[in-house]
Design a protein around this nucleic acid. Structure first.
Lengths: 206, 206
DNA sequence: CCCGCTCTCCACCTTTCGGATGATCCGTCG
DNA sequence: CGACGGATCATCCGAAAGGTGGAGAGCGGG
C-alpha cells in the first residue's frame, strides 16, 4: 500500500488528486496540506511513502523549498512534483531539491498513477513532455546566465534604466551595460526589451 | 437538481470539481469537456443548467471565446468561470463574454458550491477576492489603452524596436513613437521596458 | 600553476529612444 | 455643428542604450 500526502494550495486540485488516487486499491491518501509548512509537518508525522507536491503556493514558488525540507527528514518520503508549469528553471529547481519526478496537472490520470507508483518504488518519474524538455536542454547548448546577469536582467524587466540598476546593485553604469551586452549575446538579441522577452519565454524570468 | 458540465483541460481539476460537486445531493455533473469545442458541444447536447468553464486551455485563453459561444446557444446555460488567475483583463473579458461569475481555483469548496448554486439560480457569483478587485477598478480611474496602443505595446513587449513595430503595423516610426508616448503618460512611466512591466502587472499584457 | 569564467570597470562612437510640439484626418457624441 | 479622442505623421534635440575593444581581480578545475 502506497501511503501518500498531497500538498497543494488549491482545494479543487487536492480533491481531484484524492479522487483519482483513492480509486486505486494500492494507494491511500493519508493527508492533505495546503501550505509548504503543513506539507513538511505531515511528511514528518505520517511518514508516507510519497509526497505529491505543488510548486506554487499562493504567489510564491515555495514548493522547491518544501521539497528540500521533506527530503532532509530522518526517513525522507519520495517527493513527486505535480504542477501547472514546465519552465526549465522550475524543473531543474525541483529536481535539484530532491524531487523524484515531475508531472504536469494536465497529464492524463494514467500518467499520474504511473508516476505515483514509480516514485513510490524509488524510481524517477518524468512526464513525457518534461523528459523531452530536459533532453532538449541537454542537447542544446543551453543558455546559462550568471547570477549577476540574471539579477541585472530582473531589474531591467521591471523597467529600470541602466543607471537605476547600477544604483540598486552598487556597481557602475558601465558594468551594467557590460552585463547586459553579455546577456544580449547569449540570448541572441539586441535590445533590453527583447532580452526580457526571450528570458521570459526561456523561463529565466517569470 | 442542478445539472453541470465541467470544461477544463486538466483531468485532475475535472476530477476535483466532480468529486466536490457529486458529494452534493442537489448537484449532478453530467459531462466533462477537455477542450473549448467539446464544452460548447456538450452544452448544446446536454442542456445543463450550468457550465463550469476554465479560461486557459493549453496555452491559449480560449475560455472567454467558448463562454461567448455557450451563451449564444438557443437555451443558453449559465457559465461560471473557474480559473487560476485573476488579472483584470481576464475578469473583464469573461464577464463581457457572458459569464455569470468568476471563481478562483484556490477558493475553498464552500465558496465553489455557493457559486454554483448562485449561478444556477441566475444570480451572479463573484469570489470575494474578485469582487474587491472589480470594485477597486471602478473606484480607481483605471488606465485604458486604446486597441492600437495595446497592439504597439504588445509588439514592444516582444522586443520589437520602433522601426520593427512601424513595419509590422504599416505605419511610420513617428506614429509608433506617438502611441508609445501616450502609453507612457497613461501608465506613468518613461521607458518602454517600464511600460511593458506596468502593463503586465495591470493585466493589460500577459 | 595556468586556463577559463565571472565580475568588475573604462573609453569612444553610433544608434535608438523619448520629450516637446504641432498638425491633419476621421468618426462619435452631445 | 463643434468639441473630442484616436490615429496618423513630422521635426528637433538631448538623453539613454547599444557596439567594440580592452583590462584587472578573484576563483575553481584540469
Amino acid at each position: 500500500m502506497i501511503r501518500v500526502v498531497i500538498a497543494d494550495d488549491h482545494p479543487v486540485v487536492r480533491a481531484g488528486v484524492r479522487a483519482l488516487l483513492d480509486a486505486e486499491p494500492d494507494i491511500a491518501v493519508v493527508g492533505e496540506a495546503s501550505t509548504p509548512d503543513e506539507a513538511v509537518a505531515l511528511a514528518a508525522d505520517l511518514a508516507p511513502e510519497l509526497v505529491l507536491m505543488d510548486l506554487q503556493f499562493g504567489d510564491r514558488a515555495a514548493g522547491a523549498d518544501a521539497t528540500r525540507r521533506v527530503r532532509a527528514l530522518a526517513a525522507p518520503p519520495y517527493v513527486l512534483v505535480l504542477t501547472n508549469y514546465d519552465t526549465d528553471g522550475d524543473i531543474l529547481g525541483a529536481v535539484e531539491a530532491g524531487a523524484s519526478g515531475y508531472l504536469l496537472k494536465d497529464a492524463p490520470p494514467h500518467e499520474l498513477l504511473a508516476g505515483v507508483r514509480a516514485a513510490a518504488a524509488g524510481q524517477s518519474a518524468l512526464a513525457p513532455a518534461i523528459a523531452g524538455r530536459l533532453l532538449a536542454r541537454l542537447r542544446e547548448p543551453r543558455v546559462t546566465l550568471s547570477v549577476r546577469e540574471i539579477e541585472v536582467l530582473r531589474l531591467v524587466s521591471r523597467g529600470a534604466s541602466n543607471a537605476d540598476v547600477a544604483r540598486r546593485l552598487h556597481i557602475t553604469d558601465a558594468t551594467v551595460k557590460s552585463h547586459l551586452a553579455h546577456v544580449f549575446s547569449k540570448l541572441g538579441v539586441t535590445s533590453r526589451t527583447a532580452a526580457v522577452s526571450a528570458a521570459r519565454s526561456l523561463g529565466i524570468l517569470r
